[in-house]
Nucleic acid binder design. Structure first.
Lengths: 349, 349
DNA sequence: CGCTGTCATGATAGCGCTACCATTCGTTTT
DNA sequence: AAAACGAATGGTAGCGCTATCATGACAGCG
């Protein structure tokens, strides 16, 4: 269906634009017998117009099936009610849960989410940020505090709220997250306390998932304090149940005396636990297993997985609330929010 | 004085707009010594300008740190390179995987995703569609073929591609999905073939997740053909491991002679399987369990879960490719794509 | 040598909406 | 009664970009 309407043979219309048959605000205004600007106010600042004007505008909207052109509105007002959200991965359910928390809160306030996925690539992040700034987003949410140089300068000169989530630290603007080093310390402390001494930390793609390596730092520090070695095994695949199973196998091969494995996340840990089960290994008798994140799965396997519960949806919701507060003019409540974490001990350690 | 630059101290500037300090294309053009329209072409239709012009424009862009204002561009061209994606849930990983497939394909072509979540509410979907149309999206992707009346008329009058995914049928425009009734038949057939006769179908919120109830229809039809009763148990919570465990308990209570349970999805099925394990029930000896989706988890539990594998990322990728084809002018390849499904038999049946 | 065709570039005029003043009118204040 | 005020409304001028047409330069061609 090609949409060429220039059938009327007007000899010299000078210039012609494709007439987008769309209903415009002016048409609504005309139908309602008011000026366009009043119609605009009736829709966007209802309390700035009289009841009668508002009513007739709303009726005209209904009658004509008017759909506001948000692009034009944004250009005119340089406000878009779009929020850019940039995450490193959609496979990892952790980020999806944060998005979920963001979304339910932001949508309720009339904001839309522009979603970007960097696949753990900071250059990709920069490109996404550039694009999103071009949409005059009202704010930007990004996972993590690390950005490349270009991205950093771009954001530093941007005069809208920036929210960095997931980890805690000195960010560019607003920050909601948790202390991953502390989380690593916490779990390592737990394992020590349980009497384990031969403990291997297993992560996947640590250079990308640098938050997992921050947890390893915490883990290592605790073991160091006790004079214990902290071997690290890095898998080359992304975190998954499958990878966890492989991690278990590699640990057993490389460090046969291992008593406990501290996995970088629950996907790995659960994968290892289920694999151990298949192989007839006793957990924690033969090997203890711990994870991170507190995924539901961990509570349904036998034994239950010892893990650290991170409040992911809550993180999204809190981030959204802070952004909304900021966007409504109320300036800065707190720049940094520690959402904390909870050690959840299960039978697996 | 033809144009008054905003910094010149004109005593009575009559009207003043907040001068958005942002670098504009005109400034770039000026710095490059070309007209704005040439600068525009240099960025958007590089092969329409001379090499020298293109080069100087690109240098000016770099030097001034120009970020194109996509809002203005979209208004002028009524093309936005935004794709609206509307899903009913983000908790259900199935939709996230479709989004992932869409995204990796669309982003590569320079499209951005505007994400909306209906929470299985068709009125909410209508609101989202309205908003998204206001952004002059280039296309819209929505999960499912069912919409409310208002949404339907709105979309029917919209002259951009509409892609309905997940299920298969007569859609508004393009459609990529699978036949859920057939999938239900397939699994029921498998269970029958395995010799089970007392089979309960367990779903969660079937009025919302109507695709699950389509699978039930298929399931029921097969049993009917064999003259077997097809009891249905509907859970009131959303699909989750926890709900699956509860489903198992309820089935055992209400239908003590049950030999097999056909769950609406793998979350439920895996939850039941793990629960059975905790309770010392033998699967499939005491009870057989089947699911739908082919989540990785199903392959890691013992016994492996019998399920139906649906190509979710593939569905997203295919949908994106079809959209891109359509958006590039190449008209309609095929309006409807059946991505199919695969029965994956595991030890659980 | 004029005629047409192609290429690179530019001038102009919006896209549909809202910010910014200006105006009107009825009501309050001094 | 005059002045001051606030509420409702409207006129105008853009927001920053691109579609459309117009132009000039130069090549090919009868």
């Amino acid at each position: 269906m090609s949409k060429d309407s220039p059938n009327a043979a007007s000899p010299s219309p000078a210039r012609q634009r494709r007439s987008s048959d769309q209903v415009t605000l002016s048409q609504v205004a005309q139908a309602a017998g008011v000026s366009p600007i009043t119609a605009s106010r009736a829709l966007n600042n209802p309390d700035k117009v009289s009841d009668s004007a508002r009513l007739s505008v709303l009726q005209a909207v209904e009658k004509l099936g008017y759909v506001p052109n948000l692009v034009a509105g944004s250009l005119a007002s340089s406000r878009s009610r779009l929020i850019a959200v940039i995450v490193p991965s959609l496979i990892n359910s952790v980020f999806v849960e944060v998005i979920k928390g963001l979304q339910e809160t932001l949508e309720a306030e009339g904001y839309q989410i522009l979603l970007g996925n960097t696949d753990y690539d900071l250059d990709r992040e920069y490109q996404l940020v550039r694009t999103f700034l071009g949409w005059s987003c009202s704010a930007l949410v990004t996972a993590g505090l690390r950005h490349n140089k270009a991205c950093h300068t771009l954001l530093a000169n941007w005069d809208h709220p920036i929210m960095e989530v997931m980890e805690l630290g000195k960010g560019m603007d607003l920050n909601v997250g948790l202390d991953h080093v502390a989380a690593g310390r916490c779990m390592a402390g737990h394992l020590i306390e349980k009497g384990y001494r031969q403990i291997v930390y297993v992560g996947a793609r640590l250079s990308q998932d640098y938050r997992a390596s921050m947890r390893y730092e915490g883990h290592k520090a605790v073991l160091k304090e006790k004079g214990i070695d902290a071997p690290l095994l890095e898998l080359d695949t992304l975190g998954s149940l499958q990878a966890g199973a492989e991690g278990l196998a590699q640990v057993l091969a490389q460090y046969p005396h291992t008593q406990a494995i501290h996995f970088a996340n629950d996907d790995l840990a659960a994968g290892a636990l289920l694999a151990a089960q298949r192989q007839g290994l006793s957990v924690p008798g033969d090997i203890a297993i711990a994870g991170f994140n507190g995924l539901p799965l961990g509570q349904h396997v036998t034994p239950q997985l010892t893990t650290i519960l991170s409040p992911r949806e809550e993180m999204g919701r809190l981030a959204a609330k802070e952004l909304i507060r900021r966007l409504s003019g109320k300036n800065v409540y707190r720049r940094q929010h520690d959402v904390g974490f909870t050690l959840q001990t299960g039978g697996s350690t």
